[in-house]
Simulated scan of single mutants.
Amino acid sequence: MAFETRAIHGGQEPDPETGAVMPPVYASPAFAQDSPGEHHGYEYSRTGNPTRTALEDNLTSVEGGSHGRTFASGMAAINTVLNLLEAGDHVVVGRDVYGDTHRLFTQVYEDYDLRFSFVDATDHDAVADAMGAHTELVWIETPTNPLMRVLDIESIAAIAHEYDALAAVDNTFATPALQRPLELGADVVAHSLTKYLGGHSDVVGSALVTDDPALDERLGFYQNSVGATLDPFACFLVLRGTKTLPVRMERHSENARKLASWLADHPAVESVHYSGLQSHSQHDLAGRQMDDFGGMVSVEFDASLPAVEQFVSNTETFTLSEGLSGVESLLEHPATMTHAAVPAEERRETGITDGLVRLSVGLEAVADLRDDLEQAIDRSLRR
């Protein structure tokens, strides 16, 4: 069955009681039992809920896995993966990761005697050199946030498996419409449902998908025990979003490609980070690994911090926000917003400079987006 068809129909059957085409929102926290311990598949909504089951089955289908779990936020899913580890374990992390992921690893889990090595995951030798006898997890994003680096999932998963470590991939930016890490050897895939899968900037949630039933059982234990599960109405909203994911990602990618090409030739722009450009160092890898290049673009300006802060404050069609991946275009300044929790020296070493701006390219007319960036550049960055 084609991806577009699975996005609409995966995990979704008409309601057997009413014939409703969309799965109902089952708001009930508890479910009646015929006798003690004998129920109809559900007992308590934290443990399982029919609307959540429909979403988890849908996400499992589009990601090409066999088991899926949903959570109350992106960080809850990442936290659940780390719940699998024990004191003394070691994690290898792609250096260019979301700021809150970095904060969770270094400011929360290092206090529980987990060790983290942040490496340039575009360098496979660096990944291999960081591995050791106590490495239990390799965590990467691709494309990365905010520098849009593309990492070779198949090669990194193979390195992880040489050490019997799990390979986890945050697939938020690409979505399963463009990239399916399980097909490339990953053990578990994470998504912020808040982003493209929800798609309308009106829900917060996340998911983990795997092909390994034993791993899913462990994830499910922590999902239920910790209780950071996604509420039924949020599940309903994401189910609405997945139906249009293929067509939205096609338009996001088209707009981003056009905008990145225009920015790459702009005199005020120092560099553009977008793997859809042939000048991007991982363009060929992205072409092999992804079906398209996505809607996220980062732009480097050779300008002072006050000028860049003025630029991101002067756009009109683009909204200044830490969010991303909705139908509307957003932009943000990583050094002072999403990655402010990363120490300044580490940010600079990673490549997150004061001149870096991240664009989440929406579905508006691309000419309007160009005009908006141009007027903001004229007001802020022209010398």
Rank of each mutant, 00 (worst) to 15 (best):
M1I: 08
A2K: 10
A7K: 05
I8T: 06
E13D: 14
T18A: 09
P23K: 08
A27C: 06
P29A: 09
Q33A: 08
D34I: 07
S35Y: 12
G41V: 10
Y44H: 11
R46T: 14
G48I: 01
T53R: 11
T53S: 11
N58E: 02
V62K: 00
G64Y: 03
G64S: 05
G64T: 04
S66Q: 13
S66K: 06
G68H: 04
L82P: 03
L82Y: 14
L82K: 04
L84P: 08
V92G: 03
R95H: 12
L104V: 11
Y112M: 14
D113A: 15
L114A: 05
F118L: 14
F118D: 06
D120S: 07
D120T: 02
T122A: 13
A130K: 02
R149D: 01
L151R: 03
D152R: 02
D152S: 06
D152G: 02
E154A: 09
A158Y: 02
H161M: 09
E162Y: 02
E162W: 04
A165M: 04
V169R: 00
N171S: 09
N171H: 05
Q179S: 15
Q179F: 12
P181L: 09
A186S: 12
V188P: 01
V189L: 07
A190E: 04
S192G: 15
Y196E: 12
Y196F: 14
V204D: 11
G205N: 12
S206W: 07
P213Q: 10
D216M: 13
E217F: 13
R218A: 13
F221E: 15
Y222R: 05
S225D: 09
V226R: 07
F233W: 14
G241E: 04
P246I: 13
V247A: 05
R251L: 09
H252Y: 14
A256Q: 04
A260D: 02
L263Q: 02
A264P: 00
H266K: 06
A268G: 08
S271W: 00
S271R: 10
H273Q: 03
S275V: 02
L277W: 01
S279V: 09
S281E: 07
F293Y: 11
G294K: 07
G294W: 02
G294I: 04
M296W: 00
V297T: 01
V297L: 06
V299M: 05
V308M: 15
V312M: 13
V312W: 10
T317V: 06
T319C: 11
T319S: 12
S321V: 14
L324N: 07
E328V: 11
L330R: 12
E332Q: 08
H333V: 05
M337D: 07
M337N: 08
E345S: 07
E349Y: 05
G351C: 01
I352C: 02
G355C: 15
V361R: 00
E364L: 08
E364N: 13
D378Y: 03
